[in-house]
Design a protein around this nucleic acid. Structure first.
Lengths: 194, 194
DNA sequence: GCGAACTTTCAGAAGATTCTGAAAGTTCGC
DNA sequence: GCGAACTTTCAGAATCTTCTGAAAGTTCGC
């Protein structure tokens, strides 16, 4: 292509690829996803970078992300690493290009599973560990306490919280365990049962 | 010093009520709950105030919360209002006391349902509305687009995200709908099925 | 209607998080 | 081993969120 005409800046690469409406729609998706992320404690630019990769569907390199979202190279690099750690973005090498490219998981249920898994590890599990400690200390304390009644009630509260969270934890292990479609299956199942 | 004076600061009010171990255990719970909250986008002090009310189990007034957590009156007031909006804390009037008192929901499954409900309203639903708009625009665009192939793929991506989120939305309606124990039931059900 | 008791509001301060960009690091072909 | 292409790191800047506290608002008994 670009065969003979010397350099006709805009037209020669007749970029049907972004006919404005499409571009606007992508941008809307990116903003909303970023918005949602930020209310769930995910840095806005992280959510946006993910949204861009998801909605483009093809592997993009750092420079393209910087251009499209107007964020710094450092930010892009750090964020892509984190997204890769979560497993929702993968590094892809394109033949003939030394740049790293990145591609987002395209299956939505797999995506959601991976997100759940990552957050569970980082946030739910440490809390459960702490509750375990807290309640075993409280359990010992029931015997020796000056006010055993109060100690017992306290223990009961801790344990009810612990039980519920443990149950959710075990449940999510099964949903997201091997496969990836676990969540999808579970949701369909429940929808039909309830 | 101050050994024989009429005021013997600590000992005279032999407070069995907080035998140190109990107090420490409560404080540990409060910190961890606060920690978790803050990684899920809930202000730390909001999560802590809730944790305090939950773990005490009895109605507390603003002053007691301020003392225990060392936060300002303004913060306590604002936060209690929000917790009440979420429905996980209720305002209680105690006979003979003009102060408002606040009490946290004690049933953990009800608590979790209420949290899910609140966040769904504030965050999931607006996103769904936006996706609806985005995909109907994209749908119209498929006809007129310069590159219908690209437009179709884009629409497919939007819709797959929309479908999954809608399904979760409907599902959570049922879980949390009337009752409060919906979540509990669903979790037990799934645990036995999967 | 007045004052005391209590609560809410909100502008600005304090604090936390996120982002930038340039320098250091890595990798690769030659 | 060298330089070009690319990536990562991280100190400090920019930004966003949360918190404080004092003033304004409300409610209630009298």
């Amino acid at each position: 292509m670009a065969s003979e005409g010397p350099i006709s800046p805009a037209e020669d690469k007749v970029r049907e690829e972004s006919p404005d409406e499409l571009r606007r729609s992508k941008e809307a998706f990116i903003s909303h996803w970023g918005e949602m992320g930020s209310s769930w404690g995910v840095p806005r630019s992280m959510a946006e970078i993910h949204a861009l990769l998801f909605i483009e569907g093809r592997p993009l390199c750092a420079d393209e992300i910087m251009d499209r979202l107007q964020v710094s190279r450092g930010n892009v690099s750090t964020t892509l690493r984190q997204l890769a750690d979560w497993g929702i973005v993968t590094r892809v090498r394109l033949r003939g290009d030394r740049k790293d490219h990145f591609q987002a998981e395209q299956d939505v249920w797999t995506l959601l599973s991976l997100i759940v898994r990552a957050r569970k590890r980082r946030e739910l599990e440490p809390l459960l560990a702490a509750l375990d400690d807290a309640s075993s200390i409280a359990r010992e304390d029931v015997a020796s306490a000056a006010d055993p009644r109060a100690a017992k009630e306290h223990l009961a509260r801790l344990e009810s919280m612990q039980d519920a969270l443990k149950r959710l934890d075990r449940l999510s292990d099964r949903f997201i365990g091997r496969g990836g479609k676990g969540l999808d299956v579970a949701v369909r199942l429940l929808t039909s049962l309830l």
